[in-house]
């Protein structure tokens, strides 16, 4: 019994991993096409644009070094070969392996993303539990707040927070990476719009569940409102929350570009922006492929969480 189930689960994971590999391969191919089809000689991007006025000998040396003089299928093949071995290539601008550059910046961004993700989920659960299926005005205030928070650009939210807490009250530092104090404002900036979307999803799910007959029967057995919400309604509403959380966390890297720029924080987002500005395509591509991998892993993890939330899904898995 147990062995058969392990095999089934492993099979399901294997299928998903296969799909993930396919997506990453597709992403890498699109990325290669982006580099290959970019108008202009990539050798110029390495020396820093046509203004640098490099000598033909230098250009020829760069072309040989980066393999730009090879036909496209050789370039594509060696690109995939290196990628499969974890070699992300060499940055045009930084003149160091892309993996090294990413490794240096990864910590700050992971810290920021985890803090923001955790804050967003906790906030959403608390607010949705408190406001779902309450008097119309409580609901109205809360859903209007969600709408405004989900609508405003995150960088504007960040500017408002900076004005209030850094320049107005002098409570928190405006820029930098040092200490937990410098993490507070960027994390809140990134978390609030996410929390707004998650609250909307969770509140809708909770309100649907709270109309179910088993809720009425639980209340009839004399359970308090809090117990009904926490023990019975929450479990059902967690599934859509998990789906949405996975989707949003997978996309968090896009949000860090703006947040890290606004707060002058070191991280992958800043590295990406610098690379886009400098047409440093190997770095751009590596970060984008990394993001696709993170997205797949997060969503795979969420898929594995579903049966823990809903026992009915265990039989199917």
């Amino acid at each position: 019994m147990a062995a058969a189930r392990v095999r089934r689960v492993a099979g399901a994971i294997g299928l998903r991993l296969g799909g993930a590999v396919l997506v990453v391969w597709g992403a890498a191919t699109l990325a290669f096409l982006a580099i290959y089809l970019t108008p202009g000689d990539p050798a110029y991007a390495v020396v820093g644009g046509t203004d640098a006025n490099p000598s033909p000998a230098v250009l020829a040396q760069i072309r040989a070094e980066y393999g730009f003089d090879q036909p496209w299928y050789v370039q594509y093949g060696s690109y995939l070969w290196r990628l499969a071995h974890g070699d992300l290539g060499t940055s045009y601008r930084l003149r160091e392996p892309v993996a090294t550059a990413i490794g240096q910046q990864l910590g700050g961004t992971v810290q920021l993303a985890l803090a923001a993700g955790l804050l967003a989920v906790v906030l959403a659960i608390v607010v949705a539990l408190l406001t779902a299926h309450r008097r119309p005005w409580i609901r109205g205030v809360s859903s209007s707040a969600d709408l405004v928070l989900a609508s405003m650009p995150s960088f504007w939210l960040g500017i408002l927070l900076l004005s209030a807490f850094s320049y107005g009250l002098h409570l928190l530092p405006a820029i930098g990476n040092r200490g937990w104090q410098s993490l507070v404002l960027p994390a809140v900036t990134l978390a609030l719009p996410l929390a707004a979307v998650l609250t909307q999803v969770l509140r809708n799910a909770l309100e649907e569940v709270l109309e179910e007959p088993f809720i009425t029967s639980a209340r009839a057995r004399g359970l308090s409102d809090t117990a009904v919400r926490l023990r019975h309604a929450m479990r059902h509403a967690l599934i859509p929350l998990a789906t949405m959380t996975g989707y949003l966390l997978g996309g968090l890297l896009g949000g860090t570009v703006v947040t890290e720029t606004l707060f002058s924080r070191q991280g992958l987002g800043r590295l990406l922006l610098t690379a886009v500005n400098g047409k440093d395509l190997p770095v751009v591509i590596a970060i984008v492929v990394l993001s696709a991998v993170v997205y797949m892993v997060v969503n795979l993890a969420i898929d594995l969480v579903y049966p823990l939330i809903d026992p009915r899904l265990r039989r199917l898995a």
Binding site: V23, A34, G250, L253, G254, G255, L272, V276, V288, S291
Partner: peptide, 12 residues
């Protein structure tokens, strides 16, 4: 599989 912001950055 990509956040739209990242896709837009690749195009740029």
């Amino acid at each position: 599989a990509f956040p739209e912001m990242l896709l837009a950055l690749v195009v740029i």
